[in-house]
Design a protein around this nucleic acid. Structure first.
Lengths: 204, 204
DNA sequence: TGCAAAACCGACCGGTCGTGCTATTCTTTC
DNA sequence: GAAAGAATAGCACGACCGGTCGGTTTTGCA
């Protein structure tokens, strides 16, 4: 059954796109089917429930995030360079998946979903919490390695570093998407530079 | 009429409460009426449209925020003390409006609304953008005064300060509400302490 | 106390939601 | 090329959505 798999993938792709704008709850089967030029029931047949579709979309997003942000950082050597790469990849991720130069910020789907589901219990939320914990742990791990490499000061709290790292990204999304502040990206970089400077080991 | 005004206020109050959990779009007239023990049409009669209700709710939130966060900071003297007070009031605001000690974080409604409306054009979004700009300007103004008082270094960029200030709060909301991290508040305070230390004027 | 106006209700509208069920069309395999 | 099975369409359902309307109750004031 090759055809079905392809259709399913197409559905998930489109749903992810729409979910970035309207949230996962805002994506309705009817509109999704209309956009894909298939019937609502034909679409629905690929999933046991809407929640299953939502989770499939979330997993697709996780896969892309891993591919576009997490895995590429490994090309940099452990330590500060890798942390910097992680940050750069992360804010590049905010621009969306287009390879062409896009000016507008589309935002990180996970951050949008985080506030959508922070008060909505269920399987989607559980999966989201898991992947957000993973992400924080990834950042903290990179910081830990930077300590071990001697790039960051020995008494640095990696979890604290990850907390502030995350805050910068969230502020960027808020400033760029909602307030449409053109200086947002510059400010995010400046904040990160300050975070890095504070984390760095003192010169000899 | 006096009665109508009271009912309207009650509607807005309850709607604001629900909107903090489900988002403004998630509040439906039917459920709201049911919770208030009045008919849906009776409820609707107080507003010309659902959008008008949403804006009324947003304005109510702004009013409370002004009363609980912005105005009280003025009791502190200009400068660093006032900036600190602003931060403390802000994260207290995250706990909700209860005077009794609440353990769980309810979160800032504006941050929830920000991601709900960052891709949803309309009057609600416009009003939200306006109030978020005001908030950022308030923080930046407080920082500016701290520079003028000599508490913060002269070359501090107040807008940059406000950007990072906001990021800390957003990271707090994410950590506390979604991930249920018990150390969130401590981390937020630590991040703010670092921000303050960096902004402070060097000793002589 | 009477009465206009304000406040509220119940029923209802067209639409859309997620989700079943049954048929029909298309693919794959022998 | 036909049988088997997957993929999709058609249709209907109950629930709920925002919103309307005509009538009833309640309120505030003269």
């Amino acid at each position: 059954m090759r055809k079905g798999e392809a259709t399913r993938q197409q559905i998930v792709d489109t749903a992810l796109q729409r979910a970035s704008e309207l949230g996962l709850e805002g994506v309705t089967l009817g509109r999704l089917a209309e956009e894909l030029q298939i019937s609502k029931s034909g679409l629905f047949a690929h999933f046991k429930s809407k929640e299953a579709l939502q989770i499939a979309v979330l997993e697709e997003a996780i896969e892309r995030f891993t591919e576009r942000v997490v895995r590429p950082m490994l090309v940099k050597p452990r330590g500060a360079p890798r942390v910097r790469e992680l940050f750069e990849r992360w804010i590049a991720w905010f621009q969306g998946e287009t390879d062409t130069a896009e000016e507008e910020i589309l935002g990180c789907p996970f951050l949008s979903l985080s506030s959508e589901y922070d008060d909505r219990p269920g399987a989607v939320r559980d999966a989201l919490v898991r992947c957000q914990k993973d992400w924080i742990a990834t950042v903290a791990k990179a910081a830990t390695l930077a300590v071990r490499e001697g790039h960051f000061r020995a008494d640095l709290d990696p979890e604290q570093f990850a907390f502030e790292f995350k805050g910068i990204g969230m502020a960027l999304q808020h400033a760029a998407k909602l307030v449409a502040d053109p200086t947002a990206e510059r400010r995010a970089r400046a904040a990160f530079a300050r975070l890095l400077a504070d984390a760095s080991a003192p010169l000899q």
